[in-house]
Each structure stands twice: as structure tokens, then as C-alpha cells.
Design a protein around this nucleic acid. Structure first.
Lengths: 202, 202, 202, 202
DNA sequence: TATGAATGAGTTTTCATTCAT
DNA sequence: TATGAATGAAAACTCATTCAT
């Protein structure tokens, strides 16, 4: 729907941004129609560049995907690090989910790429490791949360996964616009996610 | 390698079974390597039939996928209906998850097809409706659960989704064999799923 | 030069011969315009088949080349074997060159493929071995020729190569039609080839 | 304005030499990997210049090939002229082959380009004429050799070709390093080449 | 019903060449 | 003169689908 550009017949030079436009077009397509349906002619057209130009910037379509993916993961993982600086365990989880939700609203494709698009078999080992790192970081947090008596008995890894899945639900709906900032659902689900992993402290 | 000859050395006739074998091969491939990587030559080879034979039974590869998908959904949805006959709300949820976990262990591809494989853009409207029906049925259950004071405040639909996502986590690990029947994690996560949606009633 | 076929607009089925026509078209193109200029669309068009059909018969363009090449080499090598049955050394060489010249006249592309077309880097190890086998067989002959006092001092391998190069000159001109059967040059050059390797017997 | 940045970390200026380096890189690549595999990115990289710079010096890749080829042929043809000054016919042939062998050892790519690399279809008419000129010059020599009773009966053109082919064998092996200066084979083959074309006088 | 050779549109990728700087 | 990002036509190859048998 409406990409504002309109350079008909003779596009030739936009002083800067070929690579940026390529990445933007690719991430949008990958996260909407999927990797296979994002053909190189389509990506090029959406980016307003020639098909061959893709290969000046990336070795292959898979390489393009992996580079974009890792950049996205890095951004999200950085938020976990940042939250680690807070004192209280629940505050950390809040901080992470809050920032991620903001990102989901500001940049839905990024969230979709990392959490919603099925990239099975397309990610290289570096990318898989990057993806793992998110769960690993969350797991570390959960270990500390357990030590502080906040988290249920059971594997910290599992609670990291449980919490993440419910957060992803929130991100998904936030990214789609179904749950705008003033909607009550995000808070409800995040609170529910907390209940899912919290120890039944009295 | 073309053995153009015709020495029926191998399999030739299973009077009943061409269609079954085709479906089995397709579901296994779709859920392991994905729809695009499941090429018709590959499906045919795995099913032990000729490529052209696929089109005796299904109009297209997408049609094949959709038929299989709907059959799988129907099976799972039936368990919800079945559980609806039980009196107590929590028992119903237990019954559903328990049966699904059994299915996941007995027939991992089926569970993968419905819950784990990304089929974005490949499902027709009938199939999408079938998929929706699972959430719709769960939602109905949640409505009743709310009426009985078991479920948190908030949209029943949301709690259906929350509960389902955590159950899917269990199904995923059960289907993969990571969590065998005697593993404690399934019970922990299912209990966690209940906490996620349960009202804090005493 | 004029492939006599003429099935316009709607070619569809020629009861037999797809593979044969493909091979014929390929060998003609490889030996006239070269491997790189023999594009798959061109080969297909010349063979009167669809481009994709090439790949039902051969894994790749290189595979196609190698299969054709080896078949051609086998044919030529067989003539050396055959000649080995003759008693006298000079008769053997005569027999080989005579048969090869016949082949060159009857099937110029075959000779071109083996001896004239530059296939550097395109042949797989099997094909290279096949090509070597021609020189190896000739070398064996030369060893016997030396033992019988017919061949000059020096490495038998070298005299095999020397003799072959001059025979190739004859084959080249015979294949091109420059030297028809009644032309004196072939005999002159073959006699010259003999002088090149013959010991200065008194 | 030069290039905006300015960290002359690498090579930058060989005031004289861009064209030379380009030619050197091209001839090496053409004669080792072939014309098609000698891509412009590769040539440019090997020459240490930018891809676009090739087109400052040559209209096209084919043009580049042809210019190089003609320069090489001119060098070799000059040796024939030079040898023409000698009195005796056999000395002339000796002189030519000796100089060429030296060139083959000093500059293998040059010899490969003219005699060994298959350039079918890539040479323009000027280049073809240049290539012909070598045979023409040799033919003239052979005509004189016949007049002096040194050369066999038959077309002088043919004996030029016969002699050349065996000399090429020597050049090939000398260029590859298989036959170093002290190896006996070159003399044997050159003597054999002489036998191939010499009249059976005496 | 089953076959499998044949199809041809479509895919990713390469590369000689151009042109604004 | 030199650069190198951008181009776009063309290459090899794949695969869902058709159809004569």
C-alpha cells in the first residue's frame, strides 16, 4: 500500500541510499510474502534498483537475509543487556518487553523478521547463534530471577521460553496494529506472562 | 540415471495405498523441509509413485497441502469437542492438552503441520477458516470458564490464544522427542499455562 | 547447415529420438561455435526440444559435453585396438589413420570434438583419462615399433605425440572437406608423419 | 577532485603502467583460464585497476584480446623475417625455432596466446590475417626451400603447416616448463620436424 | 488409474559495459 | 585519466503441471 515514491520511466540516481532502500525492501517482503515469494525481481522493483544491483551489495539472496536478520537480532538483544542493569528482576522483564513493544510499533517488519517469519533452513550458523543468544540472555536473567526467589521451580531455560512466547504474542499484535498503545490487552498478557513464570510466593 | 527399462524389480503394486502413501510422504516433507523444498519429484519419489500420479489425486500442490491441513485440523478440533463433554472447566483443558500431546508423540508431522510449519500465504480460505475454528472452539470454552469464574478478566479470545501458545510449546518439544512422556517439563508448562489464564481467585 | 526438419508452431512428439537429437545438436554446436557460445536455449532450439528437456537427459551442460566426448573417444580408441591385431607396425599406423580419416569425412563433428575443440577445464577426470588413453595406446604401439627397430631413438611417448599431431592435421582438413578422398595431400602428410618418427634405417 | 577519501594505504600511482599492467594481466588470464573465464572483474583485480578503467584503454574485451593477439603475432612474425636474412634454408628454420623456443621459455603466455589458446570466433579479421601471415611467411620460406631442393614434393603450404605443428609441440612443452633447456626432446622433435618435410635427397 | 517424458515460465546469479563523479 | 556503483540482458538450471500412452 502506497510507497510514496514515484520515479517513472527513468529513475537513475538518488544520491544516497541504494543499500538502505534495498534492505528496506527486502525486510518488508521477507516478512510479508516470505523468503521464497520475495523474488529478486520483486525486491529490486520495490527498492527501485536493478536486479543486478542486489549482488553488488550481497553475495546471494540468502546472504542478504542473514545480514538483515543479524542486525535485527542485535538490536533486540541489546535491549536485554540494557535491562540487565536494573536492580529488580521484574523491572528487567518489564523494561525488555516495553522496549520491544515500542520497536514492534515503530518497525513491525523488524519484529516479524526475528520472531514471526519462519526462516527454517535459511539461516546460517552465525544467524542461528545470534537467534539463540536471545534465549540465552533471557535464560541468564531467569537464573538470577530464580536465585532471588521470583521464578518458579523448573529449568530457567523453559521459563525463558514460556515468557518469550507470550511476549511474542504481544509483539505480533502490536506490530500488526491490532493492539495500539492504548489497548488494554498488552498489559493483560504481559501480566499473564509474569504469572506464568512467577513462583507462587506468598 | 534413467532406468528406461522395465524390470519390475522394485515395488509396483499395493492395490490399496497410492493415495495414502502420497499423503504420508507429503505431510512428512512439508513439515520437515517446508513447502517449497518439498518438490513434486521429491514427494513422488518418497511416496514411491510417479510424478504425474500426484495430479490424479490433487489438482495442485497447494491443493494437496490444503487437503492435508484440513484433515489434520479436523482431528485436533474433534478433541476440543470431545473435551467439551466434561463437567469441570479445568478438566476440559487438561483433556485437550493431554490428547494433543499423545498425538504429538504418535504423529509428530501432524502436529507440526498445524501448529509449527509456516504456511503463510499457502492456505486457502477454507483452510484458514479451519485453523480459526480451533481458536474459536477454545474461545467458547474460555467464555464458559470465565462464566464459572475460572478465567481472568479480559477477552476470552486472548486467553484462548495465550493458553494455546504455551500448549504449542509443549507439543513442539513432545513432537521433537525432547520431552518424552516421563519428562517433568510438560506438566510444569501446562501448569504454567493454567496460571497464565487463571483468575487469581482463591 | 540446414537441419532438414520443419515442424513449425506446434512440434510436439516425434515418436523416438529426443535424446539422439539433443546429442546431435550439442555436438554440432560445441564443435562449431564452442562450448560457451552453445547456450542451452540454442541447443534446445537446434534439437527441436524445450530447454528444460535437456536436464531430463543430462545433469548439466558439462555433463552433456563429457558424455558425448567419452563416447567419441571410445569410438576412436577402438580403432587403435583393432589395428593392434595387425602384424606389421607400419600397417598398424596406416590402419588407424585410414579409419580415422574415414570417420572424419563421415562425421566431422566427432573428430572436431575429440581433436580440435578446446575443452580446457571442461572435461571431468573420467574424460581426461579417456583422452589420455588414446595417447597411451599409441605409445604402446610405438614401444613395440621401437622394439622392432622401426621408430627413432627417444621417448615412445613423444613419437606418439608427433605422429598424432600430423594425423590430426589430416583429420582436420578431411573433416572440413578441404581434402576430399582423391586429394594427394593426405597421403603426403601421412607419409611425412612416418618420416617424422621412423628410424633412419638403411 | 579525485576520489573523495584519501588514505593512500594501497597502491595508487605507477605513473607509467596502467595500460601495461592491464595487458599483462589480460594475457596471463586469457592463456591460463581462457577468454570466457577471464572476466572483467578478474582482469581488473589482477591488474590492480578499476573495472571501468579497462574501457579507457580498449573498446571492449574482444578488442583487448585482439590488440594483444596482434602484438604477439607481430613479435613472432618478425623472427621469420629476421631468419630470412640467413643464407641457408635449414639455418633459417633453425633460427626461427630457436628464437621461438627462447620466447616460449621467457614468456610462456605470449606463445600460448598465439599457438595454444583456442580463440575460435573471437578474433576479428585483422587478427585472423595476422595469424595467417605467419603461415604465409613460412610458406614463402618453404617455396625457396623447395627451389633449393631441400623440401619434399607437394604444396609448400602444407609443409609449412607440418613443420609448424611440430614446432608448436616443442613450444608448448617449453612454455610449460616440461622441457627445460637441457632436455633432449626439443632437439629430437625439431630434427623430426625436419625429416617430416625434407626431400629424401642423397 | 498410473506413468514419466516433455514443457516453459520462472528463479538466482553473472558480467560486459556505462556514466556521474 | 581513473573510479566503481549501477545496469540489464542473458545464462544455467528447476519444477509444477500436462498429456499421450
Amino acid at each position: 500500500m502506497g510507497n510514496g515514491n514515484s520515479l517513472p520511466t527513468k529513475r537513475k540516481r538518488d544520491p544516497k541510499g541504494t543499500r538502505e532502500r534495498l534492505i528496506k525492501a527486502a525486510i518488508e517482503l521477507f516478512t510479508t510474502v516470505g523468503f521464497h515469494a520475495s523474488t529478486t525481481p520483486l525486491i529490486a522493483e520495490r527498492a527501485g534498483i536493478a536486479e543486478g544491483t542486489i549482488y553488488r551489495h550481497f553475495d546471494s539472496k540468502e546472504h542478504l537475509l542473514n545480514e538483515i536478520f543479524r542486525a535485527a537480532v542485535r538490536l533486540l538483544a541489546a535491549q536485554i543487556q540494557e535491562a540487565g542493569k536494573l536492580r529488580e528482576f521484574p523491572d528487567r522483564l518489564h523494561a525488555i518487553s516495553a522496549t520491544w513493544v515500542e520497536i514492534a510499533r515503530a518497525n513491525p517488519p523488524l519484529i516479524r523478521l526475528v520472531f514471526l517469519t519462519d526462516l527454517g533452513g535459511l539461516l546460517d550458523s552465525n544467524s542461528e547463534a545470534a537467534r539463540e543468544s536471545i534465549l540465552n540472555e533471557l535464560e541468564k536473567l531467569m537464573v538470577e530471577g530464580k536465585a532471588a526467589g521470583h521464578v518458579r521451580a523448573g529449568s530457567a531455560r523453559i521459563w525463558a521460553d514460556v515468557w518469550l512466547r507470550l511476549v511474542i504474542l504481544v509483539l505480533e499484535r502490536s506490530a500488526s496494529g491490532d493492539w495500539p498503545p492504548d489497548h488494554p490487552a498488552p498489559q493483560q498478557v504481559l501480566s499473564s506472562a509474569w504469572s506464568a513464570i512467577a513462583s507462587a510466593t506468598r
